[in-house]
Design a binder for these strands. Structure first.
Lengths: 122, 122
DNA sequence: AGTATAACTTGCATTTTACAAGTTAGATCG
DNA sequence: CGATCTAACTTGTAAAATGCAAGTTATACT
């Protein structure tokens, strides 16, 4: 059972499903956070800050809160305290994997010419 | 043959292909512009402004220039004047279709509960 | 020649992101 | 069991991106 649609802070630009997905995860950092969770399974707050992209802590806290609010991520221990309580993807978050795979695959052909240091991950 | 890698304004957050793709198209509007072009084939400047998301004209101009610079879009008539010279996707831009399909598909299951007016497009 | 308009630009307000601290409370150590 | 450490945030302010309302330019049409 998916979570019930509580009040979502997001405002929708249109009824387009693509634009609406982007209204949820189309900011500068959400998909990078989700990538970390796909790669590592679980991730604590300080582990996120040590990823190579160096997200700042206030943005990280805001994104984690927003992604939790729309049921894309959750704490591993939902009732536990915050310290060392890692985050993980929900079913919804895991379902974003094809988006990340498509972005990663596209990069190999069309970004690599501009950025040869690029690595392969999936 | 793909375009040679001229100087790209973008700065790369990391060597991750996903993060790097997002460095190119991960802003608030690029994928919405690309969606328009996938849906309509070609699109003029004023047609973009009449899309339901209402991008402002300065942002539109900046995005069109940036997407052209990295070879994702191009003018239908590369040598013609700007007026009524629509934009279209390059091979690189067309290759982003799987990203948009994945976002659209995800929305049907995981965004619709929050935004029931959502429509189906692919 | 005159007018309409598509394709931008410009100036400034608002929002988002960045950076550098500071705060709080649960865990660890003595 | 009290002091210390540190993970998980918050806060304050600067910089960058986006939004809004005009204005400008040049081409197509009359």
């Amino acid at each position: 059972m998916a979570a019930a649609p509580k009040a979502v802070a997001a405002q929708w630009r249109s009824v387009c499903p693509i634009a609406s997905s982007l209204d949820l995860v189309g900011d500068k950092w959400s998909l990078v956070i989700i990538r970390d969770l796909i790669q590592h399974g679980t991730r604590t707050y300080s582990q996120f800050t040590s990823s190579p992209e160096h997200i700042s802590t206030n943005i990280l806290a805001a994104r984690l809160k927003a992604l939790s609010a729309v049921g894309i991520i959750e704490h591993v221990d939902p009732t536990g305290v915050a310290r060392n309580n890692a985050y993980q993807l929900t079913e919804s978050g895991k379902a974003l994997r094809p988006v990340l795979e498509a972005l990663g695959h596209w990069a190999q052909t069309y970004v690599k010419p501009f950025h040869p240091e690029l690595v392969d991950i999936f």
